[in-house]
Structures are given as structure tokens and as C-alpha cells.
């Protein structure tokens, strides 16, 4: 078995992860190979390739594996014939881990988090909004990266919404890596058929920090725009960037999600950073966001 930390828990896994935080406590989550059902029976929320019910969710990735995530404590995997381990891990470390975090009562947003002087700043937005690219740019100026795809937030004993480190790695496309001076020949693709790479951040600490600012990256059809968001809009922003809303419905986690969202809205400042995705350069957008965050 392989042992490693993620957020506030430790995982024991039959399958190795290419990057992870070292284990520091007794494992609470197990990842094992098992034969799985193709369906969870009656009821629940069904999608084209998932079935969510209270406390359990089944995901099927064609040609790779079926994953059953149960009770926030078990991940069972049944690979398809000829599936390679890198592909199994790629979906395990993204979508499957996201489900586990939801089941463990994290508020999960689509995005990354970095730590600047003990404060968490989240970059959220839809897929392919440029979150990882921007997170990498902030890392280059000294920010400590907590995650780039799953923003995991949990209330601590004093009621503060804390952002937790998820994985010590960035997922970057080859083109972005080369633009940033990276050497792809020294990296392994996330999957054999994909030119996207897992770049270790070498972060060591697993201490959470209060999430104080949330920036939504938006594709827009006009000029660069920075907007401070009021409470009403913040609700829309959090709901709109909630990780896999349909999973929450199926797993009966909507009420918990609402309470978590409310706590976050009371604690954090929210902004929208808009750009024309195909016009604004990554560099210009980074400087724009950095200037507005006064970093």
C-alpha cells in the first residue's frame, strides 16, 4: 500500500500517485481495486456516465475505469481491460478526488488556491478558463500553491472557512509549459495520449489558511474588467463555481453546501476578473489580476 496526506486526511492506496504529500497520520481513506457494479440501483441522480446517491457515487470513464466513491472513506476502482495506470490515476486525482472531498463535507469549488502571507486566494472559473496558467504565474512570484483544479474549503472549530492543500502539483498543457520556459522532456504526460503534464510544486506543508479572497475568471467579449462582487452576486458566483452541482443533488449534500457557501460569503471578498479569452495574453491577464489584488 501507498500512504499519503491530502487536505485533513490520510489515504492508503493500492495505486501509487505520482505526486502527493507524505503521510502524517493513520489513514482514513482507502483506495482499492475491486469488481464494481455497473449501476447503483434505483433512484439518485443519473448522468451520462455517473450515478449519484446519498453517500455513494459511481463514475465510469470509457476505456479507463469505473470508480465507486463511498462514504468519504472508500474509493474502489475497476479498470477496463488494457487501461494504463497513468490514465486511472489522472481521473482519480481529479474528478474522483473531487467527489471524495464533497463526501467528506468540503465545500469544493472549480479552481485553485494559493497562499500569500497566510491568506488563501482562490482562482475559480469554468474549465479551461486559464486557472492553472494563472496559478503557475503566481507561483513563480513566490505564492505557495495549494491546488490548481480543486479548491477544497472546510470550516474549522472557530468557524473560519479554511482552504486546504490538495495536491502538490500543477496540471499544465505543453504549450503553456513551453511559453513559461518549462522543459516537457523532463516531465511525464498525465496520460499517454494527452500533452498535459503534472508539474510538482514541491510544497511540503499541509497547514490550511483562511480563504480571504475569491476571484472568478470569466471569458468575456469585451475589454479587461475587474469587478468587486456584492453579497447577492457572491451567492451566484459560489453556486456557479461549485464543483459538480449535479453530484451534490444526487448525494443529498445541497443543504450542507448552502451552509458552507453562506459561511464563505460572510468571510471572503469576491471579485470577477473578465477578459476576452482569445484576445488577452496570459501575461497581460496575470499582471491585471496581480495589480488588482495588490500583490
Amino acid at each position: 500500500m501507498h500512504y499519503f496526506d491530502c487536505c485533513d486526511f490520510t489515504i492508503a492506496s493500492e495505486i501509487a500517485w505520482p505526486v502527493s504529500f507524505p503521510a502524517s497520520r493513520e489513514p482514513e481513506v482507502e483506495i482499492r481495486y475491486r469488481n464494481l457494479p455497473t449501476d447503483l440501483g434505483e433512484g439518485g441522480e443519473r448522468g451520462f456516465r455517473f450515478h449519484a446517491k446519498p453517500n455513494e457515487l459511481l463514475i465510469c470513464v470509457d476505456g479507463v475505469a469505473r470508480y465507486l466513491i463511498r462514504g468519504g472513506k472508500e474509493i474502489w476502482i475497476e479498470p477496463f481491460p488494457h487501461a494504463d495506470e497513468d490514465s486511472i490515476v489522472a481521473f482519480l486525482q481529479s474528478s474522483v478526488l473531487g467527489v471524495l472531498l464533497l463526501q467528506r463535507r468540503f465545500l469544493v469549488l472549480n479552481g485553485g488556491v494559493f497562499n500569500v502571507d497566510g491568506e488563501g486566494i482562490a482562482l475559480v472559473g469554468c474549465s479551461r478558463a486559464g486557472k492553472s496558467t494563472l496559478a503557475a504565474a503566481f507561483q513563480r512570484i513566490g505564492a505557495s500553491l495549494f491546488s490548481d483544479e480543486l479548491c477544497a474549503i472546510k470550516q474549522d472549530s472557530s468557524g473560519r472557512m479554511m482552504a486546504w492543500p490538495v495536491l502538490p502539483a500543477l496540471s499544465l498543457w505543453e504549450n503553456t509549459l513551453i511559453q513559461q520556459g518549462g522543459d516537457v522532456t523532463k516531465l511525464r504526460p498525465i496520460r499517454p495520449s494527452i500533452r498535459k503534464y503534472l508539474v510538482p510544486t514541491h510544497a511540503k506543508s499541509l497547514s490550511p489558511v483562511p480563504l480571504t479572497q475569491v476571484v472568478e475568471l470569466k471569458d468575456y467579449h469585451g475589454d479587461l474588467l475587474w469587478k468587486t462582487v456584492d453579497v447577492k452576486e457572491a451567492i451566484t458566483l459560489v453556486l456557479g463555481n461549485t464543483y459538480r452541482h449535479r453530484f451534490l443533488i444526487g448525494m443529498a449534500l445541497k443543504d450542507a453546501h448552502f451552509l458552507q457557501s453562506t459561511a464563505l460569503i460572510q468571510q471572503s471578498r469576491f471579485y470577477i476578473a473578465q477578459r476576452h479569452l482569445t484576445v488577452t495574453s496570459e501575461d497581460a491577464f496575470f499582471h491585471f489580476v496581480r495589480t488588482n489584488l495588490a500583490l
Binding site: 470509457d62 469554468c126 474549465s127 479551461r128 449535479r246
Partner: peptide, 27 residues
């Protein structure tokens, strides 16, 4: 791909173009 992500429940951009092609009729 946002449409495909929404229906699948996982990140479709982790698939190759050929793999996405195979999904499309069924989606």
C-alpha cells in the same frame, strides 16, 4: 467540451480527440 463535461461528470479534456469522438454519438 463544457456540454460533454456536464453530461459525463468528469473532465473530458483528459481524453484524446479520438476518445472524445467515440463518445459523441452516445452523448
Amino acid at each position: 467540451l463544457d456540454l460533454f463535461d456536464h453530461e459525463c461528470g468528469w473532465d473530458v479534456s483528459l481524453l484524446s480527440h479520438d476518445e472524445i469522438d467515440r463518445l459523441r454519438p452516445e452523448i
